[in-house]
């Protein structure tokens, strides 16, 4: 990730929540349906597929992860599908804190970022001190991006100041690492809350806002992502600061990912159409995108066994 001067003094103070506009779910659904009715063909499809690959945070977040599995994933991150020349590499590899060192070693010499979840991921049910230690540990091990979770319990109880302060503290513990704030929209339930949590996170200094841990259903949907993109757009309009967006979980095929790109393009414009400002948190998306690229190049679908599963 490139550095950006305006990220240094990220926090802009507690937001005026009375100014946060309501969200109408019916209207959001209609807008999403319009994005999905876009027909993306030929050259524009190939361009989109390559763009999607470059935006992927290749992720493994399981209790059974081993150093071997993480090394495999890193190998995949660098060599997506060498049979096809000219492909980009993914944006980052995303692992638990105790696997960061392994990933760092495996990705040495590349410019692929290492993202680590932290702050008692995925539930966030711990004390602030432990969350900060968790964050520092991941950063010291070499993570350049931290994916934190907000305290949903506090948020749902209306303790917005607590949630805000916690994000500010984690951001400080991140040092130079970029902070992605996971709202866990599947637990927030309403789009109004998604919008409000997005405001809190951005005002508290988030470099990215992210939908989900992937551990709760529903994970990312186009609806919540649209609401978060609109929050980012409004935050940019009022502060001039760009914030990135990461939908995570549930985006497993290329067609859906292309619809996300359409939504991104028509909501935030060209400036966000790079891995610096948009990521897909996904584990199985890459292979479907590769398969579609092969289809575009050769006209036929190939067996899934021609693409490495790591």
């Amino acid at each position: 990730m490139g550095t950006n001067a305006n990220r240094a003094d990220a926090a802009v103070g507690f937001p005026d929540l009375s100014r946060v506009p309501p969200v109408d779910e019916v209207g959001v659904n209609e807008r999403v349906a319009r994005f999905q009715s876009r027909s993306i063909k030929k050259a524009s499809k190939v361009e989109a597929l390559k763009c999607i690959l470059s935006m992927i945070d290749l992720t493994t977040l399981e209790g059974q992860d081993t150093p071997g599995k993480v090394r495999q994933l890193c190998q995949k991150a660098i060599h997506l599908h060498d049979a096809m020349p000219g492909l980009p590499h993914v944006a980052a590899v995303c692992v638990y804190p105790n696997m960061v060192a392994v990933a760092k070693e495996a990705l040495r010499g590349t410019d692929i970022n290492i993202a680590s979840v932290a702050t008692a991921f995925p539930s966030g049910m711990s004390s602030l001190d432990l969350k900060l230690d968790d964050t520092r540990m991941a950063v010291e091990a070499g993570a350049s991006e931290i994916d934190m979770v907000i305290s949903r319990g506090a948020f749902l109880a209306g303790e917005y100041r607590y949630v805000f302060d916690e994000i500010v503290a984690v951001k400080e513990a991140c040092g130079d690492a970029h902070l992605k704030v996971i709202l866990e929209t599947g637990e927030l339930r309403t789009l109004d809350r998604v919008r409000r949590a997005s405001e809190l996170a951005m005002h508290a200094g988030a470099d990215f806002i992210k939908t989900s841990t992937g551990k709760i259903q529903p994970a990312a949907t186009m609806q919540v992502t649209l609401v978060m993109l609109q929050a980012i757009r409004d935050f940019f309009a009022s502060t001039g600061r760009m914030v990135g967006m990461k939908p995570a979980g549930g985006i497993s095929n290329a067609k859906l990912a292309i619809h996300y790109l359409v939504m991104l393009k028509e909501t935030l414009g060209n400036a966000w159409m790079t891995p610096e400002w948009f990521r897909f948190g996904a584990s199985s998306l890459a292979n479907d995108v590769l398969m579609q690229l092969e289809k575009q190049a050769t006209g036929v679908y190939q067996s899934a066994d021609y693409f490495s599963k790591d």
Binding site: I40, K41, S44, K45, C51, L261, K265, L268, G269, N270
Partner: peptide
């Protein structure tokens, strides 16, 4: 925000 240029939709 900049919407023109960049990734364009091919004719469909």
């Amino acid at each position: 925000l900049a919407f023109s240029g960049g990734w364009e939709y091919a004719p469909a």
